[in-house]
Design a protein around this nucleic acid. Structure first.
Length: 276
DNA sequence: CGGTTGCCCTGGGGGC
DNA sequence: TGCCCCCAGGGCAACC
């Protein structure tokens, strides 16, 4: 489910409630998610103070004192929701609770169990394979047209697949790649290495604008996603092509409708006339 | 080696 | 209504 805007929204929602708080209690109910939660997870985390709450790509990072960091990945259906006061009884998919000294519960829920929860030494974070191979953060200044062009020049795959590859740019998923490509007027089928000059600049700007708008809207709630507060996101109402197969191409008079194709096993939505 | 394909899971929606 | 098939926002191992 969650791509960069959704993860960023969750991080912003959790930060004021978690930063400086002690995780007095950690309750692990189910460890057999796709990447099983390590047996020593509770012992490593319980009692630690959260110093920082950050996002890298689609990862949530809780930097704790005692030199430990907690990594959370929401996978397809994961949620991390803040429950102030008495938490309701856990449901079958509520796998982990973090309870702060202040009495708030941060609950990790994941029906499909594709998510990841892990604890590791903060010093090992940079070298960890999950982080070391990530490309630039698209909302940082270091991500510019030249950086993007260079990354795309090195790949033979179609543009859609290249943008989903976290080594080229970190944090995009299926929805926001479709949306950014529409904004940039670029075909998802185009060879990535042909995106140069003005096209690379347009794509870079489109990626940033799409993500900024989505964060402003609190992310997209299609199915599973909610903010840390439990509220829905609203960006799904601003989707121009994603999940809009057959509807008229928005924002221009090209008269075509949005087409759905499958690329490397995943749906791509685009306007064949406007996007070249 | 880079790139594409299956698969890990559960739940919801559409078609019959 | 019920059942079955398909599909879903991610990422990794296994293949070509």
């Amino acid at each position: 489910m969650p791509e960069l805007p959704e993860v960023e929204t969750v991080v912003r929602g959790l930060r004021p409630h978690l930063q400086g708080q002690r995780l007095a209690r950690v309750v692990l109910r189910r460890a057999d998610i796709r990447t099983p939660i390590a047996p020593d997870f509770v012992q490593r985390v319980a009692g630690a103070v959260v110093q920082r709450v950050e996002r890298r790509a689609k990862w949530i990072v809780l930097a704790l004192d005692r030199g430990t960091s907690v990594l959370v990945h929401l996978g397809m259906s994961g949620r991390l929701v803040l429950l102030p006061g008495d938490a309701p009884p856990p449901g079958p998919h509520d796998h982990v609770d973090f309870v702060t000294d202040a009495g708030a519960t941060i609950r990790f829920t994941d029906p499909r169990r594709f998510g990841v929860i892990d604890a590791l030494d903060t010093a090992d974070l940079v070298a960890d394979k999950r982080f070391s191979e990530l490309g630039p953060e698209p909302l940082e200044a270091a991500f510019d047209a030249a950086t993007l062009e260079n990354a795309l020049a090195r790949t033979r795959s179609p543009l859609k697949a290249a943008l989903l590859d976290q080594r080229n740019v970190a944090g995009l998923g299926n929805i926001y790649v479709c949306e950014a490509l529409f904004r940039a007027g670029l075909s998802p089928l185009r060879k990535a290495s042909t995106v140069k000059g003005a096209r690379a600049a347009a794509l870079c700007a489109a990626i940033k604008a799409t993500l900024v708008d989505a964060i402003k809207a609190g992310g997209s709630s299609a199915r599973d996603y909610v903010q840390a507060s439990g509220e829905l996101g609203w960006f799904q109402h601003q989707w121009r092509v994603y999940d809009r197969e057959g509807q008229p191409c928005p924002g221009c008079d090209c008269g075509r409708s949005v087409k759905r194709i499958v690329q490397s096993g995943r749906s791509t939505f685009y306007c064949p006339k406007r996007q070249r």
